[in-house]
């Protein structure tokens, strides 16, 4: 696979991941570009070409962390206790949710959840590969995905109640009748 082909195949999902981390277009473009420059100088040494995609996402994530460390101390985020029960989502919400609302809600998630959830929704990587990219155990990835989705749904409801574009979730059946 040559460099142009590699860029063509991966620059869009990489940029989307970078944007979810950096939260602005300029930094996301810089991160994406820097990642490919690293590939041009070092990445081609990778013995297993099938791992190129994971290498690119891992490198981008490390670039992001190191650039942020340079800017300020990396904040330690306490995770809330896991939801005892995951919220359900009304079908209408799913059908009517628009892209802007979905991406806006995703961008407002805690950093801890945003990275794994974005990788998950990009569908490029399995949970095991996400664990490799983020450098955390598989169980932690599963936990963050679960909690992140719960937070995402809550956020969508909150944004909606505050008058945002997001369509509200309908209350769960059990709550309505119980």
């Amino acid at each position: 696979m040559d460099f142009e082909q590699l860029v063509g195949e991966h620059y869009q999902p990489l940029y989307r991941f970078a944007h979810s981390l950096a939260q602005n277009e300029a930094d996301a473009a810089d991160l994406t570009q820097q990642t490919f420059l690293r590939w041009a100088t070092r990445g081609f040494q990778l013995r297993e070409r099938s791992k190129a995609k994971t290498w690119l996402f891992t490198t981008l994530y490390r670039e992001f962390l190191s650039s942020r460390r340079r800017g300020r101390r990396f904040p330690h985020l306490e995770l809330d206790d896991a939801e005892s029960e995951l919220p359900s989502v009304a079908p209408r919400v799913v059908e009517e949710m628009d892209s802007g609302a979905a991406l806006d809600a995703l961008s407002r998630l805690d950093d801890t959840f945003r990275a794994p959830l974005t990788l998950f929704y990009l569908q490029q990587h399995s949970y095991q590969e996400i664990a490799d990219i983020l450098g955390v155990p598989i169980g932690t990835v599963m936990s963050r995905l679960s909690r992140g989705k719960a937070q995402l749904k809550k956020l969508l409801s909150t944004l909606s109640n505050a008058g945002g574009k997001v369509i509200p979730f309908e209350p769960e059946q059990r709550e309505r009748h119980g």
């Binding site: 989307r16 359900s88 799913v94 979905a102 991406l103 929704y121 569908q123």
Partner: peptide, 16 residues
């Protein structure tokens, strides 16, 4: 429901 929600999110994120 979770799968439907995830599919919708995948579509939106993939179209960013």
């Amino acid at each position: 429901q979770q799968t439907d929600f995830d599919r919708a999110m995948c579509r939106h994120v993939g179209q960013a």
